[in-house]
Amino acid sequence: MAAKGEPLINSERCKGCGLCIANCPKNILEMSKEFNSDGVTFPTLNDEETCTACTFCATMCPENAIQIRRF
């Protein structure tokens, strides 16, 4: 199945709360192995084919670090 969209994750705004990961219905977000300049891990997309652009991750993000682009 082709992806319907993708989250654009601004890792520098992220504080690593993980609410996006917990609320992703497809479980395709995971914490990064790297750190941003605050020393915080941030979400990354582990499956680019499955995103439905549902916006759940962006809706839960308190930092506005995620925007959604629909293809």
């Binding site: 916006t55 809706t59 308190p62 930092e63 506005n64 995620i66 925007q67 959604i68 682009r69 629909r70």
Partner: peptide, 16 residues
């Protein structure tokens, strides 16, 4: 492609 969840204009880009 289009942005379906974009950064609101009324919100400052300042980090909280």
């Amino acid at each position: 492609s289009k942005m379906t969840y974009a950064f609101p204009q009324s919100l400052s880009e300042t980090r909280t």
